[in-house]
Amino acid sequence: MGTELKHTDPLSSLKEFTPARIGIGRVGNSIPLAESLQFKLSHAHARDAVYSTLEVEALTARLKTFGLPVLHLHSRATSRQKYLKRPDLGRQLGEESVAELNDYSGDHDIAIVLADGLSATAINEHAVGLLALLLPILTASKLKIAPLCLVEQGRVAIGDDIAHALKARFSLVLIGERPGLSSADSMGAYLTYGPMPGLTDESRNCISNIRPQGLTNKPAAHKIQYLILEAFKRKLSGVGLKDNAGLIGS
């Protein structure tokens, strides 16, 4: 009976063309047990990523090797539950963090912010590797980098508050993206020229899906560098700045 009950899927040959869960077959009308368990495992990984936390000590130690001060900041969202229910609090810097930043206010070109977002896993695993490629390129372009900021319970717009407090001319926010079922460790990069509190998404450029199975560090670093240099040249970012970095051979 078992052999008649389970129908394999002749489309499994087409799996190479899409990451979609095609060709999984059926048992009666239902999804086969192995696939059902696989799905639950993927969902558990995605959920874990949402509740993962920044490995602050380990990240700080690794970031210090770049020779810049490393600051540990917090948004006004005091817990993950609060963060999920109140997006506005995740966009604002906590009072103590504001005070800490004031000490480092100065003549900076770029504020670099690493925020947990919806997947601290993404930052824990990919942020330092990307910066190791990016920072030498930026300093070679004579750009002055502000202290590196690690932010807990942060959303994208918190970069505006941070860069504004540091008096930086540009902000680069590396942040964990909302995990998909097959991509729990995806990192996004948001770039803003002239950051100040109150800006919205049309003022930014975004590079998404930075992870080993997506956009890898090397092309990501090149895209970021391209956009930063263009933004400084044209004194803007966002919808007015198109990402043509793909044209320079990636």
């Binding site: 979609a20 095609i22 969902h43």
Partner: peptide, 18 residues
């Protein structure tokens, strides 16, 4: 109807063909 309920572009889960 989405393959295996997993929308690999929009990154959310819905209902499957099954």
């Amino acid at each position: 109807g989405i393959p295996g309920s997993d929308d690999v572009m929009l990154n959310y889960q819905s209902t499957s063909f099954h």
